[in-house]
């Protein structure tokens, strides 16, 4: 039984409904550091749930996004893309480090990344 009203709560394009449970946490994050900090706050088990759900859909996600010109996306597609960008962080934890983040870093570890001469 769902009380979620479409158009008000976050939603994903058709065929990606199964990933909607991750939108609330990952859908609004705009920067690498925000995604990195969320990744660090979560347990590896939680990150694995996300990884196992999104990874098999990665090619589908980009085949869907390929239909859009590179630039601002409609809200649903933007949410989908942000899940993929979240996976870029989560995969580091699950595939590479084996911990939410490098275990020897301090709790405050952060790197503010800027793009001073980006062509974007």
């Amino acid at each position: 039984m769902s009380t979620i009203e479409r158009g008000v709560s976050p939603s994903l394009p058709a065929a990606f409904e199964a990933l909607e449970m991750f939108l609330e946490e990952w859908g609004d994050l705009e920067t690498e550091d925000e995604r990195y900090q969320l990744r660090r706050r979560k347990s590896l088990e939680d990150l694995k749930l996300f990884y196992d759900a999104v990874t098999p859909r990665l090619e589908d996600v980009f085949r869907h996004l390929d239909q859009f010109e590179y630039g601002p996306l409609p809200r649903a597609e933007q949410g989908l893309f942000r899940l993929a960008l979240g996976l870029a962080e989560v995969a580091q934890a699950v595939e590479v480090i084996g911990h939410p983040s490098v275990p020897t870093t301090s709790a405050q570890h952060t790197i503010q990344i800027s793009r001073p001469r980006s062509l974007k």
């Binding site: 690498e32 990195y36 980009f62 996004l65 390929d66 859009f68 590179y70 893309f81 993929a84 960008l85 870029a88 962080e89 995969a91 580091q92 590479v96 480090i97 983040s101 490098v102 870093t105 570890h109 790197i111 990344i113």
Partner: peptide, 19 residues
């Protein structure tokens, strides 16, 4: 979008190496 994702993966990877 694909190359932006690739860059995000690359940046996450080098950030972890530097960390």
């Amino acid at each position: 979008f694909r190359t932006e994702f690739a860059e995000a993966s690359y940046v996450a990877a080098i950030r972890d190496v530097m960390a």
